[in-house]
Write a protein that binds this DNA or RNA. Structure first.
Lengths: 193, 193
DNA sequence: CCAGCTGCCTAACGAACGTTTGTCGAGAGA
DNA sequence: TCTCTCGACAAACGTTCGTTAGGCAGCTGG
């Protein structure tokens, strides 16, 4: 994973700080000196004992996010359930991953395009595979009669992008818990306003 | 509008090119030299006969987008209609503005945060006002009984962010026309999957 | 025919960026 | 105690950025 040396505890700290800054200001607007400052280091150079370059941070965070989404989806699919219940569970699981990894979600949805090849293509391939799994869940619902026969491609694009848009307005420690927000959102997505 | 001189036809051309690049690569990743290149000019300096600075372009595009959204919403509200039909018309109008101004939409939703104060605050204020108008439309539907009594704040956030997420996947000249996509999306938002 | 304006060119500026390098103090192991 | 390792420090590197300045071609109105 492109680590140069030693203490991987420290690497996780750097990634956590970078995640927050990438979400707040964006990848390009975040300098190595910003990250160093946020860790109480005096110069950006100190970070290079732990990483090979700035893009390593982006790559590491992007993969963490991808892993989290896949893990949540596979946990849902591992359990026996009717197509509709499975889709609903997958939606809620996806939303909960976002609420728990807001920084990584920003990288996963917005900042990934600053990856250079070939990592960018690798990322996109994994992302596409995840979307196909979701589309299959939706098609199972329609085949089952649990959903209206709508355009599945359009519906999948809408469903995923609508879920992902949650990162723009969800605030932790708000009036509702993450679980409550996720359930309410799943309800609106499945049954409308 | 921060124009330094002369031909405002040329300014519009610059903005059109910048809009495209800001959408493709992001504001920070787009250099003045990139914009000049895309206009077949040989150096970034030539642009400064028409603008005062890079941020002027962002500001100009952001305002064009805001104006377009407000104009579409006011056209809908100017016509007499029941709350539900008015909400549906507003949704479709909003989606059509996005399909017709994909570059400006990218600035309106993503790149605006690179505006510096006080313009950033001015932009956010206008954006908030627009969102409040939409929330009022939704509340009218609930008061009317046309919609279920859901959490209006949550529903508004979801509705707006779900509509805006369309910019990530909509492609002009696709299988469906913009009008068809907008109507299908409005249907899914209002009635679920 | 010429004066003036407009728009683009070229070159350069200072600042900020990611990254590299050499140094040094603190702690661990023998 | 000596030695080795590790993380942080400070300074500097080459590049790219937004921006400025000066000059020059071509059109326009008198």
């Amino acid at each position: 994973m492109s680590v140069t040396s030693g203490n991987s505890r420290r690497l996780e700290q750097i990634c956590a700080v970078a995640e927050q800054l990438f979400r707040d200001k964006g990848y390009l607007a975040t300098s190595m000196r910003d990250i160093a400052d946020a860790m109480n280091l005096r110069g950006g150079g100190s970070l290079y004992a732990h990483i090979k370059g700035k893009e390593d941070l982006l790559w590491h965070i992007a993969n963490e996010a991808t892993d989290a989404f896949f893990a949540a989806l596979e946990a849902v699919c591992a359990q026996p359930a009717a197509p509709y219940e499975r889709l609903r569970a997958a939606i809620i699981a996806h939303l909960l991953v976002i609420t728990q990894h807001l920084g990584a979600a920003a990288v996963y949805f917005d900042e990934w395009r600053h990856l250079t090849e070939p990592r960018r293509s690798q990322f996109v391939a994994r992302r596409d595979a995840y979307e196909k799994r979701f589309q299959a869940l939706l098609e199972a619902c329609i085949a089952n009669g649990a959903c209206r026969p709508i355009d599945t491609r359009l519906a999948t694009l809408h469903l995923l992008s609508a879920m992902n848009a949650m990162r723009h307005w969800y605030k932790p420690h708000g009036r509702l818990s993450a679980q409550q927000v996720a359930e309410a959102l799943a309800d609106m997505l499945l049954h409308g306003l």
